[in-house]
């Protein structure tokens, strides 16, 4: 489970009722170009999902598994008696998602350097106040997600103080 439901119940309900878009939960199935995310992306997406969510516009498919006695995510492909690929599983960002989110926050990608040999990426972001911030990652998406995570964490700290 990603979030302690009992603690978040009120917050979830509030968001549901007000159809808040970016309050909690950024979740989607793996993008077709991103079917095998690396461990780093999975970890970053998981961390982000604890801080920021977004309601999906499309439906989430579920079913009742009588063997397990639980509601489960419905699987897209089924082989034999057991499903294999989840139709809606959890939070994996795509590069497009990340850029859209960053722009919504009033920031933008200023310059990107991707190194052919290692594949790692250096990104300069233009912040809301016009200053530049630097982030690096094992690849483009890692760097974007690291920036998003840091931004969310700093936002959460500002709210606390």
């Amino acid at each position: 489970m990603l979030i302690d439901v009992t603690l978040c119940r009120g917050r979830i309900q509030q968001a549901l009722l007000h159809k808040e878009a970016i309050v909690f939960g950024m979740t989607r199935g793996p993008h077709k170009d991103n079917l095998k995310p690396d461990k780093e992306q999975v970890e970053l997406s998981r961390e982000i999902s604890k801080l920021c969510w977004r309601l999906l516009e499309g439906p989430a498919d579920i079913f009742w598994d009588d063997d397990v006695g639980e509601v489960m995510a419905r699987y897209e492909k089924e082989s034999g008696s057991r499903p294999k690929e989840p139709a809606n599983f959890w939070p994996l960002w795509t590069i497009e998602d990340a850029i859209v989110w960053i722009r919504k926050q009033g920031c933008d990608v200023h310059a990107v350097y991707q190194f052919a040999e290692t594949g790692h990426a250096d990104i300069y972001f233009r912040l809301e106040d016009g200053n530049l911030a630097f982030e690096k990652g094992g690849n483009l998406l890692d760097a974007l997600l690291t920036f998003i995570l840091k931004k969310l964490k700093s936002g959460a700290e500002c709210e606390k103080s």
Binding site: R9, G58, V71, W90
Partner: peptide, 29 residues
Amino acid sequence: SKKPVSREDFLFQLMNSFLLSPALELRFH
């Protein structure tokens, strides 16, 4: 369902599904 499930458990599971896929609608197949 062959196994009885309490309303509270069911709600909890729906919530969990929603947390995993916070969509505008849940489609129960």
